[in-house]
Write a protein that binds this DNA or RNA. Sequence first.
RNA 1: GGACGGUUAGCUCAGUGGUAGAGCAUCGCUUUUACACAGCGAGGGUCGCUGGUUCGAUCCCAGCACCGUCCACCA
Length: 741
Amino acid sequence: MTKNFQKLPNKGETQFSFGVGAYDPKLVEEKIYSIWEKSGFFNPDNLPAQAGLPKAKEFFGKAQDKNYIIYMPLPNVTGTLHMGHLLNNTLQDVLIRYERMRGKRALYLPGTDHAGIATQFVVEKELKKEGINRWDLGREKFIARVWEWKNKYGDLIFNQLRKIGVSADWSRARFTMDQAYSDDILKTFVHYYEKGWVYQGLRTVNWCPRCGTSLSELELEYADEKTTLYYIKYGSFTLATTRPETKFGDTALAVNPKDERYKKYIGETIEVDSLSTDGELEKPEIKKIKLQIVGDDVVDIEFGTGVVKVTPAHDILDFEIGERHKLPMIQVINERGRMNESAGKYAGLKTTEARKKIVEDMKSVGLLVKEELYDHRIAKCYRCNTVIEPIPSKQWFLKMKELAKLAKKAVENGKVEILPKNFEKPYFDWLENIRDWTISRQIWWGHQLPVYYCKCADCDHAIVSLEQPKSKCPKCDCKEYRRSEEVLDTWFSSALWPFAGLSASDLKNYYPGNALITARDILNLWVARMIFSGLEFQGKLPFSKVFIHGTILTKEGKRMSKSLGTGVDPLKYINEYGADATRFGIIWQANGQDIHWDETSITAGRKFCNKIWNASKFVLSNVSEMGKIEKFKPTTEADKKIIAALEKIKISSGKNIETFNFSEALHEIYDFFWHDFCDEYLEIAKSQLAEKKTVETTKKILSYAIFESLKIIHPFMPFVTEEIYGILPIAGRKLLMIEKL
RNA sequence: GGACGGUUAGCUCAGUGGUAGAGCAUCGCUUUUACACAGCGAGGGUCGCUGGUUCGAUCCCAGCACCGUCCACCA
């Protein structure tokens, strides 16, 4: 079998190179991918001087509107290919290949995300096997370890993407911690600071005691759990809480001002019996404490008893109540999730242990009224699954008010279209109820804040600067500073991907981009932030359309997840059925709804590969030469019918791709090729080829139809079509991936 | 609690105001100058339930049930 297009015979020579039996992707895919990569055509600007290939300008032209870019959603360096990537990257590849064949300078921009917490967690797990932790190693050595890890494994996913045929320009691959990218990020921070939007504040934040860092609300995951709801006596009031261990941090009781039962108490300060933190651990005692009673709308009259204890230090909602009513804040839990010295004799206990003990003690002194079982949602760290502990912490925040307005307006006025349209609502909901973004993280792997703290004890004055400040501290005259040890939220850097990932000239040529293809779970986490970042820093939207594809669920409709063991490995399918069949299978099912993954659609894809292969073989056995392939005037009814169907499918499949109806496009292409072309026309062609009158026309139509079909199918199933194209005796052959569609 | 989506053949899903479709699976026949990963043909569905609009509803409307995803400050 001749496999390499460069070694193919010239026109006129007969070539039977399909061999015997079914199409075998194993003999084809790796070879074809390497031909593509070597051709240089993944990079629309940098074509190799390869014999027989057209020059860039000839093919693409110069006009700006011929530039087309898709930003690959950044895979994490810890990432390996999963079904979500398979769907997402395949759809993008269909688009980019389609646009490339339509004559655009199509750039598919790849990159990887340093993925702060995720990557740090992976390396920490490695260290754990060696019996050490990151503090044993120290910051510098630890970061060196992470880099080592990144250099070794960080690009694995790129090779997996190559396996599915992704035609990204790997020469442009960026990493969010590349020097230029990092510089942009720090400048962004300073820019926001100078606008007065970055500020430092002591607030109760979501804290992961294991990772030792704050998290944004989008980095939490929730688990339904049965918890006990404890009814506790506070003087004449009884209230319900799931977290009795935070009671020593209570600084008020809150009721709803509309609540007839309690509104008369608002403003009063009461003295109540509480558990004492003094004395011996084994001897629970009662102590009088004073609490004020505040009225606040957030209190639900229906829930529990309608009275809430307010613990500003350990609950985000309570913190907000505290701010509204100027309540003091008492921290009783530390960064490691243990009770601190303010908890007196309970200090040192883990919160769960403390809860048990405190409940026991309250029982024995008569403060516990009753317990009931309660369905509760518990926030957990999205990386390590540790229960989140809200604690007060000094963090850096980005004011979201103005940025959210930008992002909201862009969609409202239609400059950015979110498709399907019903995803606009969750987008608006988030932006309308947005809180300031906690952008600092207390981990080590990431972009260190461009912040310097005065070294003097008690001063700690912070200066935001790209360089080590040389001037005296305006607060204490000291001249020595230390760089902040905190790093930025990973999403702070991914938000800049559409422009920080581009060189100056690429920025000029390719920004703004076109369509963004993504899954709905990162609509706010990523898409909204790219939108306001693009507007803020480039003055232009990064893309005009956001297409949200379905989420892949198990056949039973459950979420696919590693921890649940419900995930499947797309590489398994590629090995077993080939990349084309796998691509076919996933697009076949991706109709817009969430996908209940059914691998039998890959079977259909494999069969379709074989059908294309064999139909091509039949054409080749009858057509020894495919000179100038052009539309030929049909003569018989069958000829007319097939040409008409072909012209129709060319137009409608293109339209469907451009409107993101990938599945529909594939279904109609399948129907056309299998039924109209193979079942009907090929059968009639057999008799037409036996007739002197029709033999020549039939050959021309077969040549034309197979060639056009290969082009139409190519964006979906690039390997098999490219291979066949390389076998057919086409005059002036180059590569199917750059044939004009 | 809210939002959104779903409920059609054994399975996964399309679809239309007027005798219901695909892929996979099943059954029968066929090795005919591409393909048995095939061809031809067949079986299989009161299109979640209850009302309403209509000459006519799987499709439109209302209510209900169940399933799912996301969001939310019920401590």
